[in-house]
Write a protein that binds this DNA or RNA. Structure first.
Lengths: 230, 230
DNA sequence: CTTGCAACATGACAATAGTCAAGTTGAAGC
DNA sequence: GCTTCAACTTGACTATTGTCATGTTGCAAG
């Protein structure tokens, strides 16, 4: 079912890229390949984890529903990224739900397969820990941002992460809709709108899902300034 | 150097308790046992990880310094808890700093030892993933709280976590000083004071580091209520 | 083409949290 | 016992964000 192009993407994923080819072949041949429509659920919070998931195309969000129904977006993944590693190997329920936020392609690696390969070659365990560590790290970074930065500063960092060039100025497309960006950054859509307005003052123009940053350094200074001295 | 009592605590830690005794013995005999004074640094952000750390007594905080010097507390660990697993096995720099917030005892397991044992028995990898998953989970929970609850509600949850009994009412000691509690909950000490004041209305009395909760159910309802309908 | 809807923007207001300043208080050191 | 200092509390004020209401816009189904 899998196109060669998809397999190539899978091989480059953080989870698989450092594994010996032989293992990767085994995993790819036993993986389940699926397409999801925008809005489709991939798994639900409290459901038991049976696989590790690798995004091949599109965008997937992980989120938590509080008892009152408020949604907190925990992370958003795209091509080459994987999630569910630590959960799948322990047969514990997912602490979050996953949903496709655009049409997307996802590869599922059954966890029993991963476990049995891990018994043969401990290198696999290290690979899994590597991806897990990346998630841990990104959650830590998010926590720092939420605790130490204003909304507009978080938006500034989000934009800076989109333009990987160290160029003077640049233009980027917002990867998904603003409601999701707002959720991902821990704010309401209205606040995101206002944050964008503020960023006009440091040379950011937003038009639809297209952003123009006139001076990256200026934006970076803004993002890292002490909130109290702004 | 290690007392038997300390070894007993180490054996009960989340990291080691599910491992075969034989491995635990090996790890314990090669571990480094250290005492730290209040305020002493255990490791610094950006430092290369060489060991996994298990707290035997006292309290340790993990925190991040933003470029501007603002401190964001990521987690606080105590007896039986471990940290640094995912980092130690990858020879990558710590994303956070660790500091003793009270006098404490910490056991350090050198990561090369863990890696070599892991090659012999993949079960060790699963154990490490288990602890790592717990951290991941707690970070996710923190993110949800920060995004979906008010300060006073986060304080309420913090108190609820302290009293494990399902009893009607209970009394607990605050485990560390209020400045650190405030940091851990993502607020300023002043806001914590005010949050405590508000909780008086739902039957919480704070005196020094001693808290009296007259009705746990009432507090739980408060913590989980929709912030908008309070 | 038009209707309808969801995403987005904006203004007015309320709630929440941070800042600054001025006290208290309790414990450690002299 | 006294001094001193840091932790803590409280009040007044400000800034930020959420909430509610209203209006615009672009896209898609008919």
């Amino acid at each position: 079912m899998a196109h060669e192009a998809q397999k190539a993407i899978a091989r480059q994923s953080l989870l698989l890229k450092s594994l010996p080819n032989q293992h990767v072949d085994t995993l790819l041949s036993h993986a389940i390949w699926r397409s999801y429509d925008r809005g489709e659920t991939i798994f639900l919070q409290e459901e038991e984890a049976k696989a590790v998931h690798v995004v091949l195309a599109g965008w997937v969000k992980l989120f938590r529903m509080s008892p009152t129904g408020a949604e907190a977006v925990v992370s958003v993944f795209t091509r080459g990224e994987s999630f569910g590693e630590a959960v799948a190997l322990r047969n514990v329920p997912y602490p979050v739900s996953a949903e496709a936020v655009s049409a997307c392609e996802v590869m599922h690696i059954p966890s029993p397969l991963l476990l049995s390969l891990m018994k043969e070659d401990p290198e696999i365990g290290v690979s899994i820990l590597a991806s897990t560590f990346t998630h841990l790290h990104s959650l830590v970074a998010q926590l720092e941002q939420l605790k130490a930065q204003t909304g507009a500063q978080r938006v500034a960092e989000f934009l800076l992460n989109l333009c990987d060039t160290a160029d003077d100025g640049c233009e980027v497309e917002l990867p998904y809709d603003k409601m999701l960006i707002a959720g991902r950054l821990g704010m309401k859509p209205e606040s995101l709108s206002r944050a964008f307005s503020r960023l006009k003052a440091v040379g950011v123009k937003i038009n639809r899902n297209h952003a123009v940053i006139s001076n990256i350094e200026r934006l970076r200074d803004y993002a890292e300034a002490d909130p109290s001295e702004k």
